[in-house]
Write a protein that binds this DNA or RNA. Structure first.
Lengths: 296, 296
DNA sequence: TGCTGACATGCCGTACTGATATGGCTAGAG
DNA sequence: CTCTAGCCATATCAGTACGGCATGTCAGCA
């Protein structure tokens, strides 16, 4: 039982004769006669009753016709499905993003464009910090991540630079910091700092602390928050000031003022997209391709 | 996309390497390499990632594997289904039987044996008189019938003799006919007869009337019944006596006495099985085959 | 650095498939 | 009743596809 034999057989059934079928499938009549006979021998059952004028179906032939139509339909379905999969038009992609960067216009545009262009792809966005993203990328439960890295070289991963973040100062609108001009970091020696947990986001904090070490500046921390939103909320409440990635300023926060400081701007915080080198998912690579359009 | 390629591909996936698969399917490794490549070219998608140690699946490959397994399963299902159909182990058979003959032990045995031996065949028995059976056989809505025929030669039909019925006299148990010895038909000249409608069962009544014409006997009909059961019920009620096929006596009827008369026994009523000559249903032919066992 | 195991490539013989020519059969027209 | 057209079957030949063998290439491992 071969696909060719089945499609020949279908043509014979639908045209009512082998000769008519031969015209339809553009194959000589003896070839069809033989293929039908081979099919019958293979199945061990007569499929057609031969008459002087065309053929008629046996019981088995009727049953095979229905099945054959389904089988061939199924084959073309698989074809189109695989083709769509190969072009990344269907399938699944999971992407990790830090909540902070969901507010960055380019990141938002990337997600939106991908959803629009590849509407049939199951596109899942997971709000995760850099550390958990890395873990999940390595274990394969995440296809791609938008995250901070300590280096562009990550074993088993491929990376692409999205943009350069830096550091900014977030101060309560009502505080003296918001109005008084500020130039050097050491002017903040006696300021109260709201800080995050290194354990939650080691990649980010290691980088920040290394920068501060170089500047010989040590913030006086009076309060800790689990994530950027919490920290900024504390700043808005007047509990202190905070160091935040510049991406945070993309999200206006009532009661919070974002300030530039040369010494903070100098701290380069590259934002990367990363994915498993062995991940060949076309849907993923379409996402990566979109990055080139959005992040020029 | 051919079945062979799919089964090769499945072997490759399940063994994890082309070489291992070649040992499993007993085909040289280069042949597998080529068939997989042809499959990939045909589908326009890479299915395997080749490594120094075996191969791994791409996204498309994983999808194809699942589909291919289903497709091949489907093929073997079709095989077994067609084989069963060809042997008449599954399928449908419809059989017409006159209600009267359902009581005949051999007919009952035929139905019972067929149901037992071919339990998976949808076997439908339609209680029909000879006339309607003939119609339905000709129009194809009935596969076979157990019926009276005016001739063994029926255009488009094949026939097989089952048994010879004849005529009997049915009289009320309480009547004088039941006790007084009876020899000749003419003794019934003044008897009240319960009769059937020729229009309902022309085959039967034409035969009966032809016989009576030869005997120059004309029954005095006082009552009509639509079928044998009704007629026999009328006899039991004392409304008159009736001529019935001998098969009726297989069904004991309270209040009715069946009598033999040489002149009635002489009326040969052959019972036939008939089916369309063009009907090739193996299930039907199994039924016909059983007839040889039951009606020796 | 050599070895082993795995995939790729080239070549050849065989089997399969299709085209052409031809014959037999049957239904329908004259 | 005969004749013919149309259809299926068979035989033969050519082209193609498939599998086997020998060999090449590459990556991982000791």
């Amino acid at each position: 039982m071969e696909f060719r034999q089945l499609s020949y057989f279908i043509a014979v059934v639908e045209t009512g004769s082998i000769s008519a079928a031969s015209r339809r499938v553009h194959v000589a009549q003896p070839a069809l006669t033989r293929q039908v006979r081979l099919l019958e021998e293979d199945l061990g059952t007569r499929l057609l009753e031969r008459h002087a004028r065309g053929v008629s179906l046996t019981v088995a032939g009727k049953a095979l016709y229905d099945e054959a139509v389904q089988l061939l339909d199924r084959r073309t379905q698989i074809r189109t499905r695989l083709s769509a999969l190969g072009q990344g038009l269907i399938g699944k992609v999971s992407l990790g993003v830090t909540v902070t960067h969901l507010w960055v216009p380019e990141v938002a545009a990337l997600l939106r464009h991908y959803r629009d262009r590849y509407a049939k792809v199951a596109f899942e966005v997971f709000p995760l910090l850099s550390g958990p993203q890395l873990e999940r990328l390595r274990e394969g439960s995440l296809d791609a991540g938008i995250l901070y890295l300590d280096s562009a070289e990550q074993p088993g991963l491929q990376t692409r630079l999205l943009q350069h973040d830096h550091l900014m100062l977030a101060v309560p609108e009502a505080s003296r910091w918001a109005t008084r001009p500020l130039n050097r970091l050491r002017e903040l020696n006696d300021a109260d700092f709201v800080w995050g947990f290194r354990s939650v986001s080691p990649v980010y904090y290691d980088r920040v602390m290394a920068h501060f070490d170089r500047l010989k500046f040590e913030p006086r921390v009076v309060q800790y928050g689990a994530d950027n939103i919490t920290i900024l909320s504390m700043v808005a409440a007047g509990l202190g000031i905070a160091i935040v990635p510049s991406a945070s300023s993309a999200h206006p926060m009532p009661g919070v003022c974002f300030l530039h400081l040369d010494e903070l701007t100098a701290c380069d915080m590259p934002l990367w997209m990363a994915w498993r080198s062995t991940n060949d998912s076309p849907a993923l690579h379409n996402l990566i391709g979109l990055v080139d359009e959005v992040f020029r």
